[in-house]
């Protein structure tokens, strides 16, 4: 039943990888599952929602850019704690983070999504899609909510999410990487660890297929975000210049 072990990889090593990745995920999650559960029914009032909707696009973009930047810092910490990541050359580390951090954020995001009332955690409370109207990107917001809905249907455990986000981050097909083979080996080990974790949890074979099948949607959301940012930059260059430097670094051309 078990998948063959990657060449030169022992069961002990897989166990070590799993423990390391899961620990890193838990240590670098902005909110614990208990905190999220506690907040799940704390929503915005109609007046507060209207107030957010009537903000200018510049103010709302700035606010969201700050939230995304904070979340990226946690993803960088997550990456640093994955065994083998810091052994890669710094050029490759940066390429993997720039290309993969939004994917990781999109997967992690479904922890902060309540599928029952279709709301997302934003600034300490849960907000529906129309809350983000001021951004002027209804299609991007709708795509993010749709993804969260479909990801939450998969019902990933924290262990599965930890390993899946690590595997996505270690994608060897990102352009300009120097040590593709090394990254490929690392990713293969993480995927086998994930398969074993799924089998242990009694999950069906389909669960991994379902998780992986969301990757193209994530990629299109990442591209849509970049498109929207580029348009915003054209219309409001001064505001875009005041976005957090890390946000500009990661999403700049």
């Amino acid at each position: 039943i078990h998948n063959p072990l990657p060449e030169g990889c022992s069961l002990l090593e897989l166990e070590h990888i799993t423990q390391c990745v899961v620990k890193s995920h838990i240590e670098t999650s902005q909110y614990s599952t208990e905190e999220l559960k506690r907040m799940a029914w704390s929503t915005y009032s109609v007046e507060e929602t209207r107030m957010y909707q009537s903000k200018s696009a510049e103010v709302m973009w700035q606010e969201c850019a700050i939230h995304i930047t904070n979340a990226i810092q946690y993803v960088v910490e997550f990456a640093k704690r994955i065994s083998g990541f810091m052994d890669l050359c710094q050029n490759d580390q940066i390429i993997l983070l720039k290309a993969g951090c939004m994917d990781v954020l999109l997967i992690r995001m479904c922890r902060a999504y309540n599928p029952i009332n279709n709301t997302f955690l934003f600034n300490g409370r849960f907000a529906p899609a129309h809350f983000f109207k001021a951004l002027g990107c209804d299609d991007l917001v709708a795509a993010v909510f749709d993804l969260a809905k479909s990801l939450s249907r998969i019902q990933m455990s924290e262990e599965e999410m930890a390993l899946f986000t690590a595997a996505v981050l270690l994608s060897p097909d990102r352009p300009w990487l120097t040590d593709v083979q090394q990254i490929q080996k690392l990713q293969e080990k993480v995927y086998v660890a994930l398969q074993r974790c799924l089998q242990k949890g009694g999950a069906s074979e389909e669960k991994l297929t379902k998780m992986v099948s969301k990757l193209p949607v994530m990629r299109s959301i990442c591209m849509l975000h970049i498109d929207k940012l580029e348009f915003f930059r054209l219309v409001h260059p001064e505001t875009a210049y005041t976005f957090p430097p890390l946000y500009r670094e990661v999403f700049g051309s």
Binding site: E27, T28, Q73, Y74, K80, I94, P245, L246
Partner: peptide, 20 residues
Amino acid sequence: KEKHKILHQLLQNSTSPVDL
């Protein structure tokens, strides 16, 4: 290197800038 100054710094920092 200049282009990814902050990522470089974050990767080199042994302590996290985020209060984890």
